[in-house]
Simulated assay, not measured.
Amino acid sequence: MVDLVDVFKIVQSYKLRADFKGALARLLEDNVGHVHSRSGKNVTPLSVRTQELRARALCKAFEDFHQGGHAIQSPYRLEAKHVQLLVEIWLAQGQTSSTIDNKLTHLRALAQWIARPGLVTTLADYVDLEKHGWSSPDASGRKMSFSGDGIDAVAVIEDIARTDAHIAAQLKLQAVFDLGVKESFVFRPKDAARCRDFLAIVRGPKGSCLRMVPSEVKLAVLSEAAGLADQYTGTTMRDRLTKQQWCRVYYGVLKKHGITEKGLGVTGQGLKRRFLEQVCGRLPNHSPPLTVADDNTYRDTHHTVEKHPATVEALDRATKESSYFAMQSGPMETRLPMVTHLEMGKALVWNFEDESHQAGAPRISR
């Protein structure tokens, strides 16, 4: 059963007519938890946080519409002219193309709920993008700012690293392991290195896109992040800042380096996508990581890298290092002595008060 946000409480905080609030609240209650995906592959239910953001975005859109001097009797009466007026209102408020595009996504979901799936189209259908200095979609329909085409992402991230190496490492983690921005903040690379299956991850949190990234790339990024991990928290956030504080630092650095549509013309998403294409493109016999259809493409490479010593922990013994990945059974079996039941019985009798001594006598771990 999917947890639902309290939409009635959310709707009450906006300046809308009472009858409009009631209709909108009922519409949200019935649909806000539904996944809105064009591909139809994402079957993961929406989190309560995402439901709340969607509900507030729709409430705010209708509030802006009414405060702009326009009238609409019910959310079921939404028409194309209303969407056009909303976009013009948002433009007058000075909102960016990314913000408006995000709001249109929520309106597109609402259009599906009221059985009008083609009602809300793309931003380019409502605004002259070139006139406002915004990047237009490429031949495949993607916005250039999200694809990162024409950007040397490796050089840009290296430049960011000179300002803050922690943020550069987080950008690489997001690209290689398909983490969200805030997920990369709390990600603990040393703990991930101890997980035997971590390098085998081929899908991001949403599970909608296959990402076969070579394991040597994953290991290099994981090693770099582990070297920057905080001694106490284990994350790559420095100075023990909270997630909210670090979020301000993170976006401040990106803005400083022009990672905006008005700057270099590329967003963080486009930068990460381009970085992954560049890094994987330098390796022989590797196709772009976001377009691989065969799960077994890099199986041999993956098994080879799994045997690589876990340099993330900078340990001095190769036998101990190799146990951090999927080679635990082999090295452990070769270096631990075979102990009989009789020898174990003697160890338990003579060292019954101390587990360490019980294990140490036959030279094995507890």
Rank of each mutant, 00 (worst) to 15 (best):
N31F: 08
V349A: 14
G141L: 08
E63W: 00
P205S: 06
W134Y: 12
F8C: 03
S98E: 12
S140P: 04
F62V: 00
S322T: 11
H302V: 05
D30G: 09
K143E: 11
L219W: 05
G68Y: 02
T236A: 04
A347C: 05
A25H: 03
I10A: 05
H106L: 06
L171K: 05
Q244A: 10
G330D: 12
P284S: 10
A25N: 04
S322E: 04
A61G: 04
L107E: 01
G281L: 06
Q51N: 06
A192I: 01
L123C: 04
S329Q: 13
R274L: 07
T105V: 09
Q328Y: 13
D295V: 14
M327Q: 14
R238A: 07
L78W: 01
H302E: 14
P284Y: 10
L290A: 10
P75T: 02
L179P: 10
L271P: 02
P214K: 01
R282P: 00
Q73T: 10
G330S: 14
T233Q: 06
I259H: 04
L219E: 08
T242N: 00
E277V: 13
V186G: 02
F198H: 10
H66P: 02
P289A: 00
G133M: 08
Y324K: 06
I151W: 14
T304M: 14
K255Q: 12
D164T: 00
I167V: 15
G360T: 07
S13E: 12
E29W: 01
K15C: 00
R188E: 11
K346M: 14
A361T: 08
L271C: 00
L228S: 04
R299E: 11
P337L: 06
V349T: 13
G148Y: 09
M338K: 06
A193N: 07
F146L: 10
V213D: 08
K272H: 00
R273L: 12
V154C: 09
A115T: 09
Q231E: 12
K206T: 10
V213W: 09
V312W: 11
G150W: 11
D164K: 00
T297R: 05
D138T: 08
P309I: 01
K41S: 07
F187K: 03
M212R: 14
P289Q: 04
T260V: 02
R56H: 05
K60C: 02
V83L: 03
W246M: 00
E29M: 02
S13H: 05
L110I: 06
P137F: 04
R194Y: 09
R366C: 14
R282V: 09
A18Q: 15
K9V: 15
L27A: 06
T267R: 15
L104K: 03
K346D: 14
L228N: 06
T297A: 15
S329D: 12
R162W: 05
Q245P: 01
S140W: 13
D354K: 12
Q12F: 01
P75L: 00
P205G: 01
K60Q: 14
A310Q: 03
